[in-house]
Simulated scan of single mutants.
Amino acid sequence: MRSTDVLIDGFGRVAGNVHAVLDGITPEQLIHRPAADANTIAWLVWHLTRGQDAQIADVAGTEELWLGSGFYYRFGLPFPPPATGYGQSPDEVAQVVAEPELLAEYYDATHAATISYLQGLSDDDLDRVIDENWNPPVTLGVRLVSILDDDAQHVGQAAYIRGLFG
């Protein structure tokens, strides 16, 4: 087994969880906040997808699907195109309202781009330093694990909120 096969499996598990959260969800459930300043399922799925899209495009040297495939315009969110949700306020979180089908479509496109990129990598590629602003410098493998970890945390949070509905 190659190291990238483990990453592909991990991202596949996130995909299954994203779909489990979105399957049959109502618009009210998507924007429900279990506490006044809590994130919503809509924001969590959008944010994990935006982060993955932006970071995979960066390391792959490709255009983000957010702009390149027109998702920015289809979502119609009141944020500048580079926004990924990082550091957003509770008021901004509340502004992420989208149909579950659109969230799933954007996620699926991002997932497909991620898997395609991973399939083209070798184990040696994962050792390539991509960011020397850290000590130790960040390798591609470490960045990919970081993306996967962030996605797993956010989809877990979304699953928790979804579970509140029984």
Rank of each mutant, 00 (worst) to 15 (best):
D58H: 10
V59K: 02
V59Q: 04
A60P: 00
A60G: 03
G61W: 05
G61S: 08
G61V: 04
G61I: 04
T62I: 03
T62M: 02
E63N: 08
E63Y: 03
E63D: 10
E63S: 08
E64T: 10
E64F: 00
L65C: 07
L65P: 03
L65T: 05
W66R: 09
W66Y: 13
L67D: 10
G70M: 07
G70F: 06
G70W: 05
Y72P: 05
Y72W: 11
Y73H: 15
Y73C: 12
Y73T: 15
Y73A: 15
Y73P: 02
R74S: 06
R74A: 13
R74V: 08
R74L: 08
F75L: 08
G76S: 11
L77F: 15
P78R: 13
P78Q: 13
P78E: 13
P78V: 13
F79H: 11
F79Q: 09
P80C: 11
P80E: 15
P80F: 10
P80M: 11
P81A: 14
P81K: 13
P82G: 08
G85H: 05
G85T: 12
Y86L: 15
G87K: 14
G87Q: 15
G87D: 14
Q88G: 12
S89A: 10
S89P: 01
S89L: 09
P90D: 07
P90A: 12
D91Y: 11
D91N: 15
E92V: 05
E92T: 09
E92M: 14
V93P: 02
A94R: 14
Q95G: 09
Q95R: 15
V96E: 03
V96Y: 00
V97L: 11
E99L: 10
P100W: 01
P100Q: 03
P100I: 00
E101D: 10
E101C: 04
E101S: 12
L103A: 03
L103K: 00
L103M: 06
L103W: 00
A104T: 04
E105V: 09
Y106S: 05
Y106K: 06
Y107F: 15
D108K: 06
D108L: 09
D108A: 13
D108M: 07
A109N: 09
T110L: 00
H111V: 01
H111Y: 08
A113L: 06
A113T: 03
A113D: 01
T114L: 03
T114N: 01
T114C: 02
I115C: 00
I115R: 03
S116D: 10
S116T: 11
S116P: 02
S116E: 11
S116C: 04
Y117I: 03
Y117Q: 03
L118F: 01
L118I: 00
L118Y: 05
Q119S: 09
Q119M: 05
G120T: 03
G120R: 02
L121H: 05
L121K: 02
D123C: 08
D123I: 07
D124N: 12
D124H: 12
D124K: 14
D125I: 06
D125E: 12
L126R: 04
L126G: 02
D127A: 14
D127E: 14
R128K: 10
R128S: 07
V129E: 12
V129P: 02
V129M: 08
V129L: 10
I130T: 04
D131A: 10
E132M: 06
N133D: 12
N133F: 07
N133L: 09
N133Q: 12
N135Q: 13
N135E: 13
P136R: 11
P136W: 09
